[in-house]
C-alpha cells in the first residue's frame, strides 16, 4: 500500500460553541510522518477540533489546509475520518458495510477484516455482533484506504488489549510511510510516539 504523503496544517482555528469559546487561535503544521494526540478533559473541544480538521464542521475562524490545495473541502478525499459513532449500518453485514465505505476491491476488504480479527463473520449482520466487533468493522477501513491523513476520534473505545496492539502497529506503519495521524484517547497508548496538543477547558 502506498500513500502520497501530504502535510496537514491549520492556522488560527477558533471555535465558539453556545457562547463558550472552546479554543482560540490554534495553529500547527503536521508534516508527513506526524502523529498527534489531542488531549484534554471532556468538553474541551477535542471532537469538535477533529471534525473541523475533517471538514465536517466549520470553524468560526481560521483555516485548514492539506498539501498545496487551499480549499479544505476540495481535498476531503485525502482524509479518513473515524468518528465516535459506529459508522456502520446495523442491518447490513460486515462485508457490505465495508464495501460501501471504501472503494477497495473485495479481496482487500477480506484481508482487512482478517487483520482486525473478523475473519469468518464477514456475512454476519452488525446487529448480531458485539459492540467491540462492530467497532472493529469500522477500524477495518484503516487497512483498505490509501489515504494520507487519518483522523481518529477515540479509536480505542470498546477494544480489547489484543486489538489495541494491532491498531497501534497499524498507526505506526501509516506514520512510517509518511502519513499523518491525529487521534484522541483517554487511555494511555503504550506503543506510540506522539506529540500532544493539550486543550484546556476554558469557561
Amino acid at each position: 500500500m502506498l500513500i502520497k504523503p501530504k502535510t496537514l496544517q491549520f492556522q488560527n482555528l477558533t471555535c465558539v460553541r453556545d457562547d463558550r469559546c472552546l479554543f482560540a487561535d490554534l495553529s500547527m503544521t503536521l508534516p508527513p510522518g506526524s502523529l498527534l494526540r489531542v488531549a484534554g478533559p471532556n468538553g474541551a473541544g477535542k471532537t469538535t477540533l477533529l471534525r473541523i480538521l475533517s471538514a465536517l464542521h466549520e470553524p468560526d475562524s481560521g483555516t485548514v489546509q492539506i498539501g498545496e490545495v487551499e480549499d479544505h473541502l476540495e481535498s476531503r478525499q485525502e482524509i479518513l475520518y473515524l468518528g465516535h459513532k459506529p459508522q456502520v449500518c446495523q442491518d447490513l453485514s460486515i462485508m457490505d458495510n465495508l464495501m460501501f465505505l471504501t472503494d477497495a476491491s473485495q479481496a482487500i476488504c477480506f484481508q482487512a477484516l482478517q487483520f482486525v480479527g473478523l475473519k469468518g463473520c464477514e456475512d454476519s449482520l452488525v446487529r448480531e455482533l458485539s459492540q467491540g466487533q462492530g467497532r472493529r468493522c469500522g477500524l477495518a477501513r484503516l487497512w483498505c484506504h490509501e489515504v494520507p491523513i487519518w483522523i481518529l476520534d477515540e479509536p480505542y473505545t470498546a477494544l480489547d488489549p489484543g486489538m489495541v496492539a494491532i491498531l497501534e502497529d497499524r498507526i505506526n506503519i501509516h506514520v512510517g510511510e509518511g502519513g499523518v495521524c491525529v487521534f484522541t484517547t483517554h487511555q494511555n497508548p503504550t506503543n506510540l510516539r506522539f506529540e500532544t496538543l493539550e486543550l484546556a477547558r476554558v469557561s
Binding site: A55, R76, Q77, L80, Y81, G83, K85, Q87, C89, L101
Partner: peptide, 16 residues
C-alpha cells in the same frame, strides 16, 4: 435518520 444516527451519513462527505 438511521444513517445519520449511525454516522454513515457523515462518511458521504468523504466520497469524491
Amino acid at each position: 435518520r438511521d444513517d445519520f444516527v449511525d454516522g454513515v451519513l457523515e462518511q458521504w462527505l468523504f466520497f469524491n
